[in-house]
Design a protein around this nucleic acid. Sequence first.
DNA 1: CCATACTATACCATGATATCCCATATAATA
DNA 2: TATTATATGGGATATCATGGTATAGTATGG
Lengths: 154, 154
Amino acid sequence: MFLSQYTYKVDNKGRVSVPADFRISINTKFFNGIIAFRSYKFTAIEGLDFEKMKKIADSLDDLDFFSESKNDITTSILSDSYKLPFDSEGRICLPHELLKFANIKNQATFVGRGSSFQIWNPNAFKNYLQKVRSNIKKRKLSLIIKNTNNNDKK
Amino acid sequence: MFLSQYTYKVDNKGRVSVPADFRISINTKFFNGIIAFRSYKFTAIEGLDFEKMKKIADSLDDLDFFSESKNDITTSILSDSYKLPFDSEGRICLPHELLKFANIKNQATFVGRGSSFQIWNPNAFKNYLQKVRSNIKKRKLSLIIKNTNNNDKK
DNA sequence: CCATACTATACCATGATATCCCATATAATA
DNA sequence: TATTATATGGGATATCATGGTATAGTATGG
């Protein structure tokens, strides 16, 4: 499970260390590295391991072969995904395309999201998190607690 | 079940002993330590075990990268959580972020809350507790007065 | 087909930090 | 009183992030 957040340096080659704690959760059986693609909602990079990417791909196969949405999704996710292998120190090399898209320069923040993670520009994420937090404080907290308690009872 | 309160020292490395009584209640099957995050309501740190956190994560998490609804809450909670492993003496190391947020310096108070617990600045908790108690007292008092008045009317 | 330049990968070095391990004191228990 | 459990402190060790260099692999141009 990907939890917590880590901010690391991006060197002039585009290399970043993937958090050691994340590397533990990454299934490296099929590919020793991660899959990355541009987020659809955020100015950020989505990251996951090969196994989960395969799950997504398989779920796409279930869709009607001739359907439009399948075409769109297949094209946009699978063709836009990068296979980023680890070097011997557990780093990946972020392509210019992704760096530009997420507006990442010298530093990158790895953000845990349970079964996947994201890579952000540190300031952009800080601002986003602050905004979301105040929203949750106002509205949704009781809802979350309620759901959690329900799960406990199972 | 987490009960009662314990106040312990925080050393210059940020280490604190988790109350032995709490450690018994913590499920260490998946992770030998606790999960901690900033409280949404109090100036305090929320603490729970990995198992419970996983339940929360599962209820929030989905692999649907196109959905809008759960994204914000998922990120806010999961990215703000820290995995704090026990050392061989049953201590955890509180990150600066959390210490700062909860305004904890040399001492920390562990507060049992049933299925989870909190970590407070000792004085802050003392004040909060006092306030809560006086609120209850007032309510009881008003209740008694009400009852008394009713009796009078009879 | 060869030579050159560029990129990407592998390998090694280092400093900082967090983790582990041992020692001690205090309190609780037998 | 002896013994165990627990909190606390400090030092040793290992892990990790990060920077640099060397090598291989690939593309480009002659």
